[in-house]
Amino acid sequence: MTEEKKISREELLATGENIKAQYNFLVFITAVDYPERNVIGMVYHLRSLGNRDTLIIKIDLPREKPEIASVAGIWPAAEWHEREVFDLFGVNFLGHPDLRRILLPPDWEGSPLRKDYTKPGVIKRPETIK
């Protein structure tokens, strides 16, 4: 069974503590950029290894200052996933043990998976080429 929940960012840690006994496996954490709503949406995929349920937690963060508590203390696997989201979307995870870039070079500027990201040298795909 797959369940989806939308919560606010203040509720994340309490929710995590409540459900961690059941949803004991963190599949992944990722984010989506919605510039038209001015929102960065966090997505947490959790799995229960006991009864094979899936829980998807979605949290909207403001695009200008995306900040959220780190869940690395609840699910240790979150550490690298949060570093990836930090790397590619610029979301700041409060209380993360080691928040550094994980995929891009350390001196990289900007968050390349945001829709408005530009970098000199990136060639735009012309409309005529699918």
Binding site: L104, P112, Y117, I123, R125
Partner: peptide
Amino acid sequence: FFYDSYAAIK
């Protein structure tokens, strides 16, 4: 990765 790629060297 010629178009729209921030990471690939051409």
